[in-house]
Design a binder for these strands. Structure first.
Lengths: 155, 155
DNA sequence: CTTGAACTTCAAGTAACTAGAAGATGCAGG
DNA sequence: CCTGCATCTTCTAGTTACTTGAAGTTCAAG
């Protein structure tokens, strides 16, 4: 079995969220008040690792504390139905999928740029790359980057 | 052909970035100072739509203004090589791919939860869903959510 | 030439950290 | 038991990236 108790620093290492930030999350109501050692140090159990990882992921994709709080609070409230929690997760999911599409676009933009640059440019001035003609718009697979460094050699 | 000139409000509508935010981006050095009408109103051309869309996407995925500025500034500086811009884009890309993986995890967490909830729970109390046992950890495809709303009916 | 939407600048407010001070605690080795 | 030092505690202040609001100006349709 894995150990049951963690201090704030260990929790931080396990989840990739800084100690100061964990305290801030607690203050913001995203995390429950943990039990304490005699001297006041916070002690967490295993379940907090999962919970905090989930919160971190949500945060990393721009969900507000209000949204995260709403979702995580459901899990301790018997008066609110499971369906309600599911609907919230569902709404969350729609947004995640939208973000996914946007991220794919960004990825394709960057990939296309790096690819074309590898094939066509070899150390010419950056201004010739016309990076902004390609990044941000819809990518057309057919034509590579138009005037990318084709007209100028190294000095 | 599409029209050549846009005012800040139109640019805002086309890119999904608020006017106030566009002005702020300009102030932050992410966008060049645009030309002005006689009365001082900003005028942008078509290329700014692409440029701003790219900036918005980068921003939406947590890149700092410093990172975005670095990347976008290369495109106007002949003294810096194309390879340098490419390397920066490459580094950017690595981070985008990492974010992609994380986003997929989050998506799977939420999908798994919604699926299981649809199959097993039908209006029971949310606390029975044990949402945090599933969200945040590695998802095991085999077992659906364990004690999710199975033990309690509606009052 | 009037009217109203859209623009201008500037200042202040907010969300989510982030860093630093100043001191207390926990634990391992002597 | 004592020392030393990493880790913890609270508190305050600063940073980034917006966001809102005030007060006034400009543009374009009627």
């Amino acid at each position: 079995m894995t150990r049951q108790n963690y201090r704030i620093g260990e929790l931080a290492r396990l989840t990739g969220v800084k100690s100061a930030n964990i305290r801030y999350f607690e203050q913001e109501g995203l995390l429950p008040e943990p039990s304490r050692l005699a001297g006041g140090h916070r002690v967490y159990d295993r379940s907090l690792v999962e919970r905090l990882t989930f919160i971190r992921r949500c945060r990393d994709f721009g969900f507000t504390h209000a949204q995260i709080r709403e979702l995580t609070r459901l899990a301790g409230d018997d008066r609110r139905s499971c369906t309600e929690a599911r609907d919230l997760a569902q709404a969350h999911l729609v947004e995640v999928r939208r973000k996914m599409t946007e991220l794919q676009e960004l990825q394709r933009s960057l990939e296309g740029y790096v690819d074309a640059c590898n094939q066509i440019c070899l150390g010419g001035p950056a201004s010739n790359c016309s990076i902004f003609e390609d990044l941000g718009g819809e990518r057309q697979k057919s034509t590579p980057i138009a005037g990318c460094c084709g007209t100028q050699a190294k000095p």
